[in-house]
Design a protein around this nucleic acid. Structure first.
Lengths: 341, 341
DNA sequence: AGTGGTCGCTAAACTGATTTAGCAGAGCAT
DNA sequence: ATGCTCTGCTAAATCAGTTTAGCGACCACT
């Protein structure tokens, strides 16, 4: 790999100048008194030789590697992670940086190992990402340099990037109100653990609060709230069946995420009910399935790409200490309609 | 990041030995004549100082970085990619290596840039991954060192890792035969472009061939074959509606991937037909939705994790030149039953 | 003539590791 | 006493850059 690469010494020799001169010219150093002709010769020589600096050698002296560590618990390899990484990659590329990615799988030994491996490679900073939006404790080893938390916060007040779940909750509730739903709105996906323990989730509480605020402002209260032990399709299915067995059927349902909504759709389909004519459905995340469902599912998108991008920007360009909240856009789709009758 | 790290010189000084001695001891060099006591002192000093070698410095000398480039067109950030990366990460970790990940988004300029960025960092080798299993042309820049193609082949005969779609096709067909389906099996997802142009897809042709062979061996031929311009839910939906409008209804349907099957489920649900009592369904990929569908969808899993792992093994441990085929396990689920009546 | 400043450039130190070449001392045979 | 080998260790070169310190030539001014 990369054998036979021309070195700075080669360039200097060809240009008939010293390594010093070549280095300064190629780095565009101000204030050197090298002649225009010297500049020409160096650029020409570099061009002819296809010179590219050896970054290992450079970083040995400068202590900069133009490399960022992206450490995540498990985010790197899930469907939710794609956007985070893509946004980070894009922003990194724009700044001539590159990403060293690892995953700890929630294992402390792996984490320790991963962080050491990154630090040994002299990364310029660390992005520490979590799959579920939550509060976590940052391993002390990475506190020696720049760190940004992605989809997470910590007690240390480190810079962090979070989705604006609170506002998303309000958008979702407001969308239903706008369609005329009022006193027959049900909620699927209440979960004490997620709501009460910030180390488990920050999203559940924020989404719930947003929903409650928007409904409260409109003088509306929820018809029913279903608790779910997990936010998976099967739980949404069970919850929806529960709702349908009650005397008063809801006109609209808010699901705490799209997978619950997927399960809810299944239950509605089996019951012979139509979305949105009988019941409107709206949720959170904008999982790919949301657009595939029939009818397509209205939801608020987790702005993964924006978040990944923001994390890199915060890390390299510096930024505010308070949490950087990224808006979750509402995707208006076919699952919304005014209440029947 | 990593300021104040102890250097080898620090360790040597503390041990009362030369850098040479310290280096040799810490690298476990055979044949040095350093005393047992010298070994002790070096290890103790390294331990006390928390010494970790600076890999930039080491690689300057050794031309090894213990870093692998993972370059993909778009795989890194899609739901399908997770496993590839995870497998690669695991195998890399086991060999004390780390992954530098980039995505080209199919853009030649980005690709050029990404590859240069990796080579500038002296990576030990490149894994070049594609989202769709296909044949591609490798950029010449990476041919200077070890390369492994992941989910792709090339005309250059480079080592590559592919899913065994042919065998998966046979598994799928065989599973239906085992359930007693014979002359009423339909296929959804024929696509000339995918089948005929290896630069678009290798999977379509291989899956089809596997299916045809297994059915042919049993003396069975397909009841119907539906062509789809893409392999998305909407196309599966349309194809299934088409099938149901024909005089003879199939007893089982093979879908070329799970997204098509998802669409087919939707059409079946609307038509009031039951899976698997009225029609069995089986497909390919083992997308997460396959397990979430009701009833759960039988499918053959793309062995992403295994593939990513294999790529790293091939790259670092060397291996056969012929394509390394990874088996696609059959996931037997609820969507299979004997034909009705 | 001597002094000082600017211009255009370079030698050498430095980064932190690995590796080559070789030195000092002990033991042994001649 | 000399030469030889073996043991246990080290000095210095090397990798490919960046950076510091400063050199020689030329000019202007007193």
């Amino acid at each position: 790999m990369g054998r036979n690469r021309a070195t700075l010494a080669d360039v200097a020799r060809r240009a008939g100048l010293s390594k010093t001169a070549a280095s300064m010219v190629l780095n565009g150093r101000e204030g050197t008194r090298l002649s225009a002709e010297a500049h020409q010769r160096v650029f020409a020589a570099a061009e002819e030789l296809g010179y590219r600096p050896n970054l290992a050698a450079r970083s040995l002296r400068t202590r900069k590697t133009a490399t960022i560590a992206f450490v995540s618990d498990i985010v790197a390899t899930t469907r939710f992670a794609g956007g985070l990484i893509r946004g980070a990659l894009d922003a990194a590329r724009e700044r001539d940086h590159v990403l060293l990615i690892t995953e700890t799988q929630g294992d402390a030994t792996f984490e320790q190992y991963a962080i050491e491996a990154m630090l040994d490679r002299q990364v310029d900073g660390v992005i520490y990402a979590a799959m579920a939006t939550r509060r976590l404790t940052v391993p002390p080893a990475i506190l020696g340099g720049p760190v940004v938390l992605l989809n997470a916060t910590s007690a240390d007040g480190l810079p962090c990037v979070l989705p604006d779940d609170d506002r998303a909750g309000r958008s979702v509730a407001t969308a239903l109100l706008e369609h005329g739903h009022r006193d027959a709105i049900a909620l699927i996906g209440r979960n004490r653990l997620k709501e009460d323990d910030p180390e488990v989730s920050l999203a559940a509480r924020a989404r719930l609060r947003g929903i409650q605020q928007a409904l409260g402002d409109a003088g509306v209260s929820l018809l029913a709230e279903c608790f779910c032990t997990e936010w998976l399709p099967e739980h949404g299915y069970a919850a929806m069946r529960g709702l349908l067995s009650r005397p008063s059927r809801p006109s609209a349902v808010i699901c705490m995420n799209d997978r619950l909504a997927f399960g809810a759709y299944q239950a509605l389909g089996e019951a012979g009910l139509s979305v949105p004519d009988d019941i409107s459905v709206i949720s959170f995340d904008d999982d790919p399935i949301a657009a595939w469902l029939r009818p397509s599912l209205a939801t608020t998108a987790l702005p993964h790409e924006q978040m990944g991008r923001r994390a890199v920007e915060l890390l390299l360009d510096g930024g505010a200490a308070e949490p950087s909240l990224v808006a979750m856009p509402l995707r208006r789709r076919r699952s919304l309609a005014p209440p029947a009758g």
